[in-house]
Structure formats: structure tokens, C-alpha cells
Simulated assay, not measured.
Amino acid sequence: MRIAIASDHAGYDQKPGMVEYLKSLGHEVVDLGPMSAERCDYPDFADKVARCVARGDADRGVLICGTGIGMALTADKVPGIRAAVIQTPQFAELFREHNNGNVLCISGRFTPFETNKQIVDEFLTTEFAGGRHTGRVEKIMREDDPSFEGVPADFGMEG
């Protein structure tokens, strides 16, 4: 699998180890930066990874910042991306099974490296379950269509 990875300065300490870990599993890794722990802006690196995945230049993306939150917010704005902050291996499994997640955002400050490796393992080895989840993922992705006007506010309400 081809994996695009990036961090910001807060996630940089874990990135080189994660790159090596992914390579040790036999994955091709595209390191999109940064190449030092100097202060930088996470949206720039989240955008690089998300667009790489959206174009099909990588199968999945991994982003590491202080919390993962800012990276997820940025990556999710790119059409075709389903990004989330994941803090446990079980959540990574469900993210893949139920949401067909394609960009994983993890915390380099609050989650130990060993736990992040387990999270990445689940993210990369768990398949999308399909079935009833397929229609839900399609509904998520309709938000990328500029012509989609949203679900009416009274949808599903009684009265």
C-alpha cells in the first residue's frame, strides 16, 4: 500500500519513527514533510496529504500533529477525503469498517508512539464492511458536491 504521511512541529517527533515502521511493514511511504521540528502550520501539511490521497497518488494518509484535530479539520475539507482524529485501535477499526476512512489523524503529544503504531495497524489492515455502511458513506460524500443543498431542516421530524 502507498501511504502519504506528514506532521507539523508538534507531531514531528513521532513522524520519522512512523515512516520507518510503515516501511518495515512493506508499505511504500511518501513523506510530505516537514523535514525538521521547526514551527510550521499544520493546515499546509494536512492539505498535501489529503490532496495526495484524493488524487489517488496514495492509498491512505497518516497525519500527526499535537492533537490531530486541526489536521482532521483541514483534511476533511478536501473533496473525497474522510478524515478523523483517532485515539484508540478500536476506533481505528471502526473508522475503516463503518466510514471507509482514508486519512488517519493522530496525536503526537497525547498518544504514546506504541499506541499510535497499533492505531495505524488497525487503520491499514481493516477493510470497509460495506453493506448498510455503503449508503451512509455515500451520504457523507454528497457533502462534497457543491450542488447538494443539504437535508431539509424538517427531515425526519414529527409534527
Rank of each mutant, 00 (worst) to 15 (best):
V30C: 03
M141Q: 15
G26D: 15
S24H: 05
A54F: 06
M18R: 00
G131H: 09
P146K: 13
A6M: 02
S147M: 04
P43S: 09
G150K: 13
L32T: 03
D59S: 15
E93Q: 13
G159S: 15
P16C: 14
E149M: 12
G101M: 06
C40V: 14
H98L: 07
R136M: 10
F123K: 03
P79C: 13
Y12H: 11
T125M: 05
R96L: 02
Y42F: 13
G68C: 11
D145Y: 07
L25K: 08
K15N: 01
P112G: 10
A72M: 00
Y21C: 09
P79V: 07
D41Y: 10
A92I: 05
T88R: 15
K15Y: 03
K15A: 05
K117C: 15
D41R: 07
H133A: 08
T74E: 13
I106F: 06
M157L: 15
I140H: 02
L124D: 06
C65S: 11
K77S: 05
D154A: 11
V49I: 09
A84C: 08
I69N: 12
I64T: 05
V62Q: 01
V137K: 04
F45E: 02
V120I: 13
T134R: 12
M1T: 14
K48G: 01
F123T: 08
M157I: 14
V62A: 03
T134P: 00
I81P: 04
A58S: 04
P152Q: 06
A54P: 07
T67M: 14
A46L: 07
I119W: 03
L63T: 01
E20L: 15
A153S: 06
L124R: 07
A46N: 03
I64L: 08
L22P: 07
S7M: 08
M1K: 12
N116W: 00
R60S: 03
G156D: 11
D57L: 08
N100Q: 12
T134M: 10
I119H: 03
G131N: 15
H133Y: 10
P89E: 08
L73T: 15
V29Q: 10
I86G: 00
K48M: 11
F113C: 00
E20K: 14
P89M: 05
M35K: 12
P112S: 09
